[in-house]
Design a protein around this nucleic acid. Structure first.
Length: 459
RNA sequence: GCCAAGAUAGCUUAGCGGCGAAGCGGUGGACUGCAGAUCCAUUACACGGGAGUUCAAAUCUCUCUCUUGGCUCCA
């Protein structure tokens, strides 16, 4: 199993800290608006990563933080004349709903920042005690000059930054220094007691507090979107090392951007697509397929058309597994016999080779399609041994579990409720009669209009 | 300005030293009253330009052109 590490900028063999165990942390969202499809991409991918590591035998503990106290949340609360905590609660709930809809089910623990205030304060105290942070009139700051490796992960030259950083805080020793604890600035913001008076945590400290609480000083994988590499992950590394020289994160993984109409999603550009809006138009499975049909580190351009293409491709796989299922005349028999059918052997080999090579899902998918192309005729002609029909079904089950896309179920975009289903049956009966009377004109018109409504009928 | 990523058939995406691959699309056919779906067959003048290294380069080096991203909060 090879994983690309941002720190070394190359693929490295996965070596876990304790046998068979992977401690995985991924930066979660700040809950002040609905998650967009870029979040969707990142979290679907880490979902696949977790699923795969688990599949190949690791016991994975996957934590994601939820930032529920932040400037943006406070600002949003002010605008909507509500409490920051209420805003956070609402969007946290909506975020979890979105993840559920995306079939992102592999996170073991969602950790809220405000549940770890004690740990955060304690960590800041230790960072200060070791001389890596200092107090000013408005907060506690990390002294970046004390940590020589600051900038190593993102390959950023600290000196360069001086020219570009906004200097919003005059009391800081250096413009690059980042805040660990913010002292109360206005009466409306939520605060907690601390040795430095009432205040709230800075953004970077929550992750190290949470990871230390659950994982200790060393853990295996830390993931997140590419945009978090600097300064967020640099800050985390600095904090970790400030607490403990031996602290280490072995693999830093970053997902590439999902851009819309050539640009990164932003509200000002009005190219902001939320997960819930997208799922009104395309199925979860199609979107997941879209996400995994490119490599997680590459930059991807979002387009509805491409998701439609993915939906068609996905349907091809489903049609194939449908035939496989029909051929499986022995129910409940799962012989773990060796595979003799060559295309299936090749398919498995390629699939796992791809996944083992830094989670190369496009290769894995390609292996599936090659298998379908190579074997479809044999399947229809009944030339595949029954044991391998079953082995193929087992393979598709495994692939479904790993990728979080059920290849064995029919693609169904439209949620059926009993009423609309009855109604559709009624319309179909009417059309059937019309066709029997050779009144094609009217029956076709109904079909066309249903199509416009997004309902396709197969005669 | 500094730091990155990228340019592969009509479109999307892999490959990253030795038959250019997958999906979508296109074309022909089967099925159908027709369309779609499905199936079968088939297709393609695709590795941004130019040098170099090598027996061999899409793949390595240099260079040019272009695109995108980061350097402020950001998955």
């Amino acid at each position: 199993m090879k994983i690309y590490s941002t720190m070394s900028r190359k693929k490295e063999e996965l070596k876990v800290i304790s046998q068979n165990k992977v401690k995985l942390f991924v930066c979660g969202p700040t809950v002040y608006h609905d998650a967009h499809i870029g979040h969707g991409r990142t979290y679907i991918f880490f979902d696949v990563i977790k699923r795969y590591l688990k599949f190949i035998g690791y016991s994975v503990f996957y934590i994601q933080n939820i930032t529920d106290i932040d400037d943006k949340i406070i600002k949003k609360a002010e605008l909507s004349k509500s409490e920051p905590n209420d805003i956070a609660k609402i969007f946290e709930k909506r975020y979890l709903e979105d993840m559920y809809l995306l079939n992102v089910t592999s996170v073991n623990k969602y950790a809220r920042t405000t549940d770890y205030i004690d740990e955060i304060i304690n960590q800041i105290e230790r960072i200060m005690a070791r001389g890596f942070a200092y107090e000013t009139s408005d907060g506690i700051y990390f002294d970046v000059k004390k940590f020589k490796d600051y900038g190593k992960l993102s390959n950023v030259d600290i000196k360069e930054l001086e020219n570009h950083r906004e200097i919003e805080e005059v009391n800081k020793k250096n413009p690059q220094d980042f805040v660990l604890w913010k002292k109360r600035r206005s009466s409306s913001e939520p605060v907690w007691d601390s040795p430095w008076g009432k205040g709230r945590p800075g953004w970077h400290i929550e992750d190290t507090a949470i990871t230390e609480y659950y994982f200790g000083n060393q853990y295996d994988i830390h993931g997140g979107g590419l945009d978090l590499m600097f300064p967020h992950h640099e800050a985390e590394i600095a904090q970790l090392k400030a607490i403990n020289d031996k602290a280490i994160v072995n693999y830093w993984m970053h997902t590439g951007f999902l851009n819309v109409s050539g640009f990164k999603m932003s509200k000002s550009l009005n190219n902001f697509v939320t997960i819930r809006d997208l799922l009104k138009e395309v199925s979860t499975q199609s979107f997941r397929f879209f996400v995994i049909s490119s490599h997680y580190r590459s930059h991807v351009e979002f387009s509805k058309e491409d998701i439609v293409k993915c939906e068609k491709a996905l349907r091809r796989i489903k049609n194939f597994t449908k035939i496989l299922n029909e051929r499986n005349i022995y129910e409940n028999i799962k012989p773990k016999e060796d595979i003799v059918y060559e295309p299936l052997k090749k398919c498995r080999e390629e699939f796992f080779k791809g996944m083992n090579d830094d989670f190369n899902t496009p290769v894995a998918l390609s292996a599936i399609f090659s298998f379908i192309n190579d074997s479809k005729k044999d399947l229809i002609d009944d030339k595949i041994p029954m044991s391998d029909i079953i082995n193929a079904l087992i393979f598709f089950d495994e692939a479904s579990i790993i990728l979080g896309i059920d290849f064995n179920s029919e693609l169904d975009i439209y949620k059926k409720d009993s009423c609309s289903e009855d109604l559709l049956n009624l319309i179909n009966d009417v059309r059937k009669k019309l066709r029997e009377d050779k009144n094609y004109e009217l029956s076709d018109e109904i079909r066309d209009k249903l199509h416009d409504l997004g309902i396709d009928i197969n005669d």
